[in-house]
Amino acid sequence: MKNLKCMFVFMMMTVVSSLTYGQETLKMFVKENKVPCQGVAPMECLQVKYDNKNDWQFFYDHIEGFNFEKGNRYEIMVIRTKRQGTIPADASSYEYKLKSIISKTPVNQVKGIYDTKMILTRLNGKVISTGNVYLTINEDTGTINGKSGCNNFGAKFTKLSSKNQIKIGSSYGTLMACNEESMKLEQEFTNAIKDKTFKIVKKNNKIQFKNLKNKVIMEFSIPTQNDVWSFIAKNNWKLIMLENVGQDYGRASIKFDPAEKRVSGNSGCNNFFGTYTLSGNDHILFNGLGSTRMACLDKEVAKTEQKMLSFLSDKDLRFDVAEQTLNFYLGDKLVMMFGTVK
């Protein structure tokens, strides 16, 4: 009997050990706004730190059960678990799950030039219409992040005592090669901001960067909802990522008609159609979705279709637009990413 009891205790310890292997509980601080970052494709990332004294860092993953609300700073406990088995090249080594929210504190956002995506429209007196140069100024971290024409870039900046004056340090970024026009624009933009001091002036939807002689060096625009939907409407969007798996999804695509609030596309096998309604600036609800009824003989295509239609059926999704991607989130989880079809 004694041996049986010892064996039982040993077995229980083994079970508990296997359940908790590779798992730990962490305290995490989450900043009140997201910033542009580069994952599988251009996206927006949470900013987090694990010690309140450290610098903020990009967080590319999803925290299960955590519904981030912009404008609030969080202190949370999360359970981080090491993934087992073969991990896809574009996936994280860990899974994160919310354990508890310790605090949620509203933060007064600085309105105007900070924490706002700006798209370059004029540089050294020349009109820029590519949309390939944009940035966000993060006041809290003293950093500027965005795209400089071809590559993603970042730079540190210092606020000066004069109102809305900043000094930008040397920039750093990725090292991709693009077409000659893009590279030329990137070089001119990089030279314009590197180690320069600017007075920043906001005029309605325009942001001007002036030098100390009051000359406008750069002008940016803040996209309005009309701008966003005009961009969405003029493009056909092909599914390139579904539930964090990036691949070629064949015919799966989506198209919008903002004038009629109609949506159509293909879910991999069948065509679909319906309507949608908007809530605020970044939430969308698809309504009354219908589709053709062809049989999907390919099991993977059928699986894609089922998932895609599920996300498009009466769920409150958040969306955002990067340079070439249209992204949909369920809660804080990126569930679908579409790329422009050229």
Rank of each mutant, 00 (worst) to 15 (best):
L175E: 09
T25M: 13
V321H: 00
V110Y: 11
K342C: 00
N244E: 14
L212S: 14
I87V: 14
P42E: 01
D90G: 03
K299Y: 04
F59G: 10
D61T: 05
R293A: 14
N151Y: 02
R318L: 05
K156G: 12
D61Q: 15
T81P: 08
C296P: 01
I168N: 05
M294C: 10
K104H: 02
G290S: 13
L312K: 02
T304W: 03
E64I: 01
G71P: 09
K53L: 12
V15Q: 12
G331C: 10
N281D: 13
A259E: 13
S182V: 00
K215M: 04
F286K: 06
K261R: 14
D55V: 10
K31I: 11
K213A: 06
S92H: 00
T25I: 14
I232N: 05
P42H: 02
F338G: 03
V127T: 15
G149F: 03
E24Q: 14
P223W: 00
Q225K: 12
N179Q: 01
S171M: 03
K126E: 15
I284E: 01
D55W: 09
I166P: 09
S171Y: 03
F8E: 13
I113R: 03
A259Q: 13
M12C: 15
F68W: 01
M1Q: 10
N270Q: 08
C269S: 04
N54I: 09
M77I: 15
D140R: 14
V107F: 00
M118Q: 02
V110F: 07
N266R: 09
E32L: 11
N327H: 10
G142T: 09
Q109T: 14
I76A: 05
Y249V: 00
L317E: 06
K111M: 01
M7L: 15
W237N: 07
R122D: 01
S129V: 13
I63V: 14
F338T: 00
R293I: 08
L185A: 08
Q23S: 15
L26A: 01
I113N: 05
K234N: 07
T141F: 07
A177L: 15
K104V: 02
K303V: 04
T292K: 07
S291D: 04
G280F: 05
T174E: 08
K315G: 08
I128D: 05
S170C: 00
T325A: 05
G85D: 09
S148A: 15
N266K: 08
G65S: 12
G169S: 15
N67R: 10
D115P: 04
G131E: 00
I63A: 05
K213P: 06
K196P: 01
F231L: 08
V16W: 11
I193W: 01
L317D: 01
F153L: 09
K210S: 04
F29N: 10
M218L: 15
L212D: 13
S230E: 12
A302E: 08
E75M: 06
M183R: 06
